[in-house]
Each structure stands twice: as structure tokens, then as C-alpha cells.
Design a protein around this nucleic acid. Structure first.
Length: 227
DNA sequence: ATCCAGGCGTTAT
DNA sequence: ATAACGCATGGA
């Protein structure tokens, strides 16, 4: 909106990534899993299942849950935890995730049923819900404008030079939220683009020659790194 | 065969 | 306060 917010690296990188990759369509808003409407509960479950896990694996677990009619909070709290664990096995860490899904579902039944968005602190108090998962749920399921920080975000912007190694989650989140307009759709898209870029180009061993950010001279790592 | 995924909690320094 | 570790499957 203000010119100061438009002319910064964070904003420019968003434009570059969007131009390069196009919209990512994250958390299938129009019903890959549900024909018709978006399902906040399912997005929340997916957010837990994908923790430190490839999305494809989380998706397999989601499919298995749905096929068994287990994609409701009631069903998940009522099934024995070891059975739930077995169903979500493809997502990895299935024992912890099963236990923690049940805690999330109890919270859901107690607090979220009536179209209310959950409170960030309430989510953080649940075992198994950290800042990234909480913000993912609030952003992608409830459309609350919170910028999600993950390992890709750190890696990419450490290399660009905007953040340093030890910076806290909150510090990074503030940086992003103060640098770009508080628009839920922008936050949604930007985080998805960061993940895409981190997977494809800014990997652990980066592919700097193929990187648009590097091409525009915005990444100091790319100029040092020859590969 | 190794490495890594859209983290988090617990335990050790 | 922060570093190290366990949790686990599936794809590249």
C-alpha cells in the first residue's frame, strides 16, 4: 500500500516467485478432498499430518482416513489410538501424530464447533501444535492473515541475506508481516511459493544458476556460490 | 543405498 | 537458553 512497503526485498521476491511459478493453489480450496466446500477441519488434520513429512505422504494418510469415514473429530476421538496410528501410517511419526490428532480433535469438539476460529494461544497449548502448525491452520483453514514460517523460509532468506541463523519464529513472522500488506491471500500464496522454490531450486544444495532471485541479483549466496 | 520431507516435544548441556 | 535427539514412511 505505502511505497515503503512496496519497495523491499520481501515484496520483490514474492513478485518474482509468483511470476516464475504461478499460483500454487495450496490447501485445495475448492475441493480435491471434498466436492464443493472447503473443509477447515480437514485442513487442520492435514497440517498435523504433514509435519516434517512430504505432503504426498500426508495425503496418503488423509485418503486412508477419508475412506474409513474417519475425517471427523468425533470419529477420530472415538477410535483407539493404535488403530488411528495404523491408518495414518504413511504420514510417518504415526504414533505421536495419532495421539496429537486426538488432542486436536478434542479441542475441536470443545471449542471450534460453532464456526469460531480457534485462538492462536489455545492451539499452541495443545501438545503437537507448534507455531508453524498453528499458523498454517489459522491461515489456510480460517483465513486469518498470519504469515507461516518454515525451514524453507529460513533457508531462502538467510541466503538472500534478510535474516540470520538464530532469528526466532516470531521475529521472522514480524519481518514478513511488516513488509507486505496484511492480506490473507497474499500470505497463503507467498508461503506456498516459498515451499515450491525451496523444494525445486533453493534446496540444501542450491541450484543457483536456475534461480530467479539470484538472476535478479537479490541473493548474495548465489553470487558466491558457483556450483 | 543415502538423503530428505510444508515440526514438535523432551532431554541434555 | 539453546543444542541434540527421537519420532518413521516413502520418493528421488
Amino acid at each position: 500500500m505505502v511505497s515503503a512497503t512496496m519497495n523491499n526485498t520481501i515484496h520483490t521476491v514474492f513478485c518474482l516467485l509468483l511470476d516464475k511459478y504461478g499460483p500454487q493453489g495450496w490447501w485445495p480450496v475448492n475441493g480435491i478432498y471434498f466436492s464443493g466446500e472447503e473443509n477447515p477441519f480437514e485442513i487442520a488434520v492435514g497440517a498435523v499430518l504433514t509435519q516434517n513429512t512430504a505432503w504426498e505422504n500426508a495425503e496418503k494418510a488423509l485418503e486412508r482416513l477419508r475412506k474409513r469415514g474417519l475425517l471427523t473429530a468425533e470419529a477420530i476421538v472415538n477410535i483407539p489410538v493404535y488403530e488411528l496410528a495404523n491408518v495414518i501410517r504413511p504420514s510417518g511419526f504415526y504414533n505421536q501424530k495419532a495421539e496429537r490428532l486426538q488432542l486436536l480433535c478434542k479441542f475441536y469438539l470443545r471449542r471450534v464447533c460453532k464456526n469460531e476460529s480457534p485462538d492462536r494461544d489455545e492451539l499452541l497449548n495443545l501438545k503437537g501444535i507448534g507455531p508453524e502448525t498453528a499458523d498454517s491452520i489459522l491461515l489456510y483453514a480460517f483465513h486469518i492473515p498470519l504469515f507461516v514460517i518454515d525451514t524453507y523460509t529460513r533457508r531462502i532468506f538467510i541466503r538472500i541475506g534478510s535474516v540470520s541463523e538464530g532469528d526466532s519464529y516470531e521475529k521472522l513472522q514480524s519481518l514478513f508481516m511488516n513488509s507486505i500488506p496484511r492480506d490473507e491471500k497474499v500470505y497463503n500464496e507467498y508461503h506456498a511459493l516459498i515451499v515450491r522454490h525451496g523444494k525445486d531450486i533453493c534446496r540444501k544444495t542450491p541450484r543457483c544458476p536456475e534461480c530467479v532471485v539470484n538472476r535478479e541479483g537479490l541473493c548474495r549466496f548465489g553470487t558466491v556460490n558457483s556450483l
